[in-house]
Design a protein around this nucleic acid. Structure first.
Lengths: 226, 226
DNA sequence: AGATTTTTGATCGTTGACAATCATGCCATG
DNA sequence: CATGGCATGATTGTCAACGATCAAAAATCT
């Protein structure tokens, strides 16, 4: 039979605790539940119309994503991120994205070229007219696309965890992104390198990009803590 | 009161599902439960004398470690690893260990120097007299030590996940390690680089080391599948 | 005021029940 | 013989309630 590529990943089966986890994730990442907030199972259960057990399973999921910490026998708490955590996170991100860039440049083909270009065009578009939140979203989405193009499922999974925590920072810090024009143009070189299949350049550019943002975030956080 | 150093780290608080997870992890990694095995919650619960809910929590943990896959509404299954997975895994490992090597060389101090030397000496010792299993253990332990020295908690956590899957391969494949003497001497350069604080060399050596093993494992797996 | 005890409130873990879903074999149908 | 429908058993998903366990606040005592 013909290979129906449109049916490759059809129909998502999703259990309640999974759905609950995604809802919670959104609430945390959007800042609706600020970092440091204490959460009780009871409250969430009644709020979401679920049993405590189901809510607990969802909470465990977010713990493994680093969005929530579990104080055993006491309570659950939305992850509170320090400047030190940011440093760790961006160091790790630089490494993962560097690898992703190398692999993406190695494996880029017609389809992925289109995806990458679309993500970049979208970023450029949003830079002109969109809000700051949309801009951050488009930025993250471009990076995410690069990671996807690497086709390394484990790398994608590990990056997903890092990305979640990244979003927490971005949601709680203003002034991380430079001017809209600078955002778009600062991504141009890495996109070009990948499109050209230049593995080494792609890797270097992505690492440097991450490190620059990491240092900037670090400075911002330190100034906030003071 | 007098400081009772013998009581410094006694009595670990560990929930039941955590204990169950460690037991299960051992069973899986030792090969007692071979890859591909279907598992039911009922069976595990009766086997371990726990309730289904607790067992499920433990299973979820191992899912997040990549040791077990969850077939929703159907069953749980011990992760089955293909040659392609091995490729992904070693690519990722090389990147993470490269970063770990760089950070370790950067942050190495007197205490960590001692730890690293001890891990290496142990490897050399085991190479002379120990079994193949002990040798693999000492090898992984040396790498683990390097990652710990990096002091990046997130890197340590991500590496832990990779390490778990690595152990699954090592448990199911014979002939991955070269001769005992070669094992010890092949680690000498990276240890020296870290002890000397040479970041760039440490990174390069660890990456190359991983890639060599990755290719070797890949060849072995392909020959097994055929 | 400081130390100790008690109370409170939360999670932890278990049990039992039922619902939802999946896998399988059987059977009728073409 | 291939296909689709159907009944059936197995397994996970979800819920509710209960006692046990623990942490932190409140009350008590010295």
């Amino acid at each position: 039979m013909k290979n129906l590529s449109s049916l490759k990943s059809p129909i998502v089966k999703e259990s309640l605790d999974r759905k609950a986890a995604t809802q919670l994730r959104i609430a945390v990442l959007s800042g609706e539940i600020p970092p440091g907030t204490r959460i009780t199972e009871q409250f969430l259960a009644s709020q979401m119309g679920l049993s405590r057990g189901t809510v607990r399973a969802a909470l465990h999921r977010l713990v493994s994503e680093g969005l929530i910490v579990q104080n055993i026998y006491s309570n659950w708490e939305v992850m509170k991120l320090t400047a030190e955590d940011a440093d760790e996170l961006y160091t790790l991100r630089a490494s993962l994205e560097g690898l992703a860039g190398r692999l993406a440049a190695r494996r880029v083909d017609q389809d992925s070229r289109a995806l990458l270009s679309a993500a970049f065009d979208n970023l450029a578009e949003v830079a002109k007219s969109g809000s700051e939140v949309d801009l951050a979203d488009a930025d993250l989405n471009l990076h995410h696309t690069i990671v996807e193009i690497s086709q390394n499922k484990r790398l994608i999974e590990h990056y997903r965890q890092v990305e979640g925590q990244l979003r927490m920072y971005i949601g709680s810090v203003n002034g991380l992104l430079p001017t809209p024009e600078a955002v778009a143009s600062s991504h141009q070189p890495m996109v070009d390198a990948i499109l050209a299949g230049d593995e080494t350049s792609a890797e270097e550019l992505l690492i440097e990009h991450s490190e620059v943002y990491g240092e900037k975030l670090n400075r911002l956080l330190l100034s906030m803590e003071a």
